[in-house]
Amino acid sequence: MTERIVVVGAALFDGGRLLAARRSAPPDLAGRWELPGGKVEPGERPEGALVRELREELGVDAEPLAPVPGEWPLRPPYVLQVWTARLRPGSAAPAPLQDHDALRWLTPAEVWDVDWLDQDVPAVRATLARWATEARGS
């Protein structure tokens, strides 16, 4: 069995907008956009990794809500799982602290205005489908 390392991405929503983060490194990813997040460490649950990564990368206190159905391959042995999340009351505003040089809050109509990393595109599509379903249910 090959080792599989989970990377958790945050579909961070606030006021009907989704947060996108522009990579500053490594050079082959710099300038493209992703859902912020990072590796799940050994013994860590995905939702705990999400909270930790958003604190480290963006300086925010976030609350994971629910997993987005699906899993997307990254460079082996990595796979991407996405969770919806929201900022906790009183959290600082997100700021690009590590690995990113810009952030954008995107409305549903603006989501495709940024150049997403290829591996994030299917995850963003699944996130949008989930977002639309939840919006109709509320």
Rank of each mutant, 00 (worst) to 15 (best):
R125S: 02
V114H: 01
A92E: 14
A21N: 06
G31Y: 14
P94G: 02
A132I: 06
A129I: 09
E41L: 14
W105Y: 06
A129P: 03
G90S: 05
M1N: 14
L106M: 03
L54E: 02
W72C: 06
L35R: 04
E56F: 10
R55N: 14
E56H: 10
V124E: 00
D28W: 11
R86I: 05
D28G: 13
D120M: 09
W131Y: 09
T127K: 02
K39S: 08
P77R: 08
E63Y: 11
P42G: 13
P108M: 10
A20E: 00
T107N: 06
D99R: 15
R130E: 12
R130P: 01
R52C: 06
Q81R: 15
T84G: 04
E63N: 09
V60A: 02
L128M: 14
V6C: 08
R75D: 13
A20Q: 01
T107V: 12
T133W: 14
R86P: 09
A25H: 15
G15T: 05
R88D: 02
V82Q: 04
E47T: 15
R45D: 12
R88W: 08
G48H: 14
A123S: 04
V51N: 01
L97C: 07
F13Q: 10
P36E: 01
P122R: 03
P73T: 10
K39A: 12
R104K: 11
A95M: 15
E34M: 13
P89E: 07
A95P: 02
P69G: 06
R4P: 06
I5K: 07
T127A: 12
T107I: 11
E63R: 15
V79W: 15
A66S: 13
Q119G: 10
G38D: 04
P76D: 11
V111Q: 02
V111A: 03
V79L: 12
L128W: 01
P73Q: 05
H100C: 08
G9W: 01
A92Q: 11
H100I: 08
A30W: 05
V124Q: 00
L74N: 11
E41R: 13
P77C: 09
V121M: 05
W72K: 03
